[in-house]
């Protein structure tokens, strides 16, 4: 169960002084140390996801889709509003997303399992299954840094789905891996799509959203602009994009004519 009420998030924009004590001290001495402007990245988000719901999140880049997932994961605290999430949340870890590159694959599996709240012993019994699914049995003791990016993505997907979370968070991670793995992960997704698992997917693959999710939200400029059936959400998003494109086209034509 996920319940977001009036969630607003302001984030600090990158520092003009850099993250540097020396430079900040000099800026303060010269008297031009300005307080940083905040940027609103999520605005008044109201979202209620009942258990078992498969929710797609679509929208242009920078609309706040991944940020919304981070708020739900508890990584980011909202500036205003309330977030209530019950159940075990597991995010799919993608490339560069927190694996320790120096540690062998096995250690990383154990490490993530422990961070997700499993005991080490419990995870030891799951290692074989994860390796088998990711097709990385022979890379068992290879450091993650030596794996290809596709292999890392497979590993992340295999771990997150193996622990049978109540809520699975998927951020653009399904389009990775080779054909063989894609077919395999599709099967596992189908299994994850069991009635009791809640799944949140951010994707630009509109076909996938339409096919696999019952419900979808469209985000734009940090707001939810549409919330409804996936089919309708995709249509609304595509129409909005088309409208903007024809608007640009019309303005271009008008410009040409005025010359």
């Amino acid at each position: 169960m996920i319940e977001l009420r009036g969630v607003t998030l302001d984030r600090r924009s990158p520092d003009v002084h850099g993250n540097d004590l020396k430079r900040r001290v000099f800026a303060a001495l010269r008297g031009n140390l300005r307080p940083l402007p905040l940027r609103r990245v999520l605005e008044d988000i109201n979202l209620s996801v009942p258990p078992g719901e498969k929710l797609g999140i679509i929208g242009p880049n920078g609309a706040g889709k991944s940020t919304l997932l981070k708020v739900i994961c508890g990584v980011l605290q909202p500036s205003a509003g309330s977030v209530a999430v019950s159940g075990r949340v597991a995010p799919v870890i993608e490339v560069g997303g927190g694996f320790d590159p120096e540690l062998p694959v096995v250690e990383n599996i154990l490490f993530f399992g422990v961070l997700l709240g499993f005991s080490r012993r419990d995870m030891l019994s799951r290692v074989a299954g994860v390796l088998e699914f990711a097709g990385l049995e022979e890379y068992r003791n290879t450091p993650v840094r030596a794996l290809s990016s596709g292999m890392v993505a497979r590993l992340g997907f295999a771990i997150a789905t193996d622990v049978d979370p109540d809520i699975l968070i998927v951020d653009e991670a399904l389009s990775v891996g080779d054909e063989k793995f894609r077919a395999k992960s599709q099967r596992r997704i189908d299994r994850m799509w069991s009635p009791d698992a809640t799944v949140l997917v951010v994707s630009h693959d509109l076909q996938f959203i339409r096919r696999s999710c019952r419900r979808a939200v469209v985000m734009e400029h940090g707001r939810i602009v549409f919330d409804g059936l996936a089919e309708e959400a995709v249509t609304s998003y595509v129409n909005a994009v088309d409208a903007r494109a024809s608007d640009v086209l019309a303005r271009g034509r008008a410009l040409l004519r005025s010359r």
Partner: peptide
């Protein structure tokens, strides 16, 4: 060093 991880999981 573990910033990427902290961006994924709440620990």
């Amino acid at each position: 060093a573990d910033g990427a991880l902290l961006n994924k999981l709440s620990v």
